[in-house]
């Protein structure tokens, strides 16, 4: 009995220390540049840049596969930040990917909603709650305003509502010299 306990604990100890050692010895450092670019991007996951989300876009920028001016939600201010980070020339937003809009959130007209769950599947940030055949609603704190839920809705009950500026979410405008520099 004691043998068995000793053997099993020895085995577990050996494998555990082997794994512990391996995880330190073979530690993989994430790509620091990708992290920095990803931190600048607005995390709307709207895919307007042509990539599935902000992270893939950040990876593409880091590898030089994408331009820095493909992110409409981030707007001019973000392009300036990216240009500074990467040491490249500022480019104005590529109109092909959309235009900069005021920050807004999606709103579901609950009288029209038929509970088909299509918008829930489209939402990249799980901001829509609801169940089949029951009306859905949008958690406005979670919504990034990416507009991906508008397209799949079969009854067109989703609309974008601009976020009213209140004391709690008001921010300084980006300095005007940044906009003129382009």
């Amino acid at each position: 009995m004691l043998d068995a306990i000793l053997v099993m604990s020895g085995l577990a100890l050996f494998l555990g220390s082997l794994l512990g050692y391996a995880s330190i010895r073979f530690h993989v450092q994430g790509n620091a540049l990708v992290e920095k670019i990803d931190a600048i991007l607005p995390q709307t996951q709207c895919a307007q840049c042509g990539f599935p989300g902000c992270r893939p876009y950040a990876e593409a920028i880091a590898e030089g596969r994408a331009e820095i001016n493909q992110c409409p939600p981030g707007g001019e201010a973000n392009i300036h930040k990216l240009a500074d980070l990467l040491g490249v020339e500022f480019k104005s937003l590529n109109a092909k990917h959309g235009a900069e809009k005021p920050k807004s959130v999606a709103f579901i007209d609950e009288n029209t909603c038929i509970g088909c769950t299509l918008c829930i599947q489209a939402c990249p940030v799980d901001a829509i709650s609801g169940a089949p055949k029951h009306m859905h609603t949008i958690l406005s704190q979670e919504c990034t305003g990416c507009e991906l839920c508008i397209e799949p809705c079969p009854v067109d009950c989703i609309s974008m509502v601009p976020v009213a500026v209140t004391v709690s979410n008001w921010k300084w405008k980006a300095p005007s010299y940044l906009q003129e520099a382009g």
Partner: peptide, 27 residues
């Protein structure tokens, strides 16, 4: 003597190897 531990020790070892392989391959 300890052959009744065969199955459980094999499971432990295989799980360990898989984890180890994953870490090494990732690097």
């Amino acid at each position: 003597d300890l052959s009744y531990l065969t199955t459980i020790s094999f499971i432990v070892v295989i799980a360990g190897i898989v984890q180890f392989t994953e870490i090494v391959v990732k690097k």
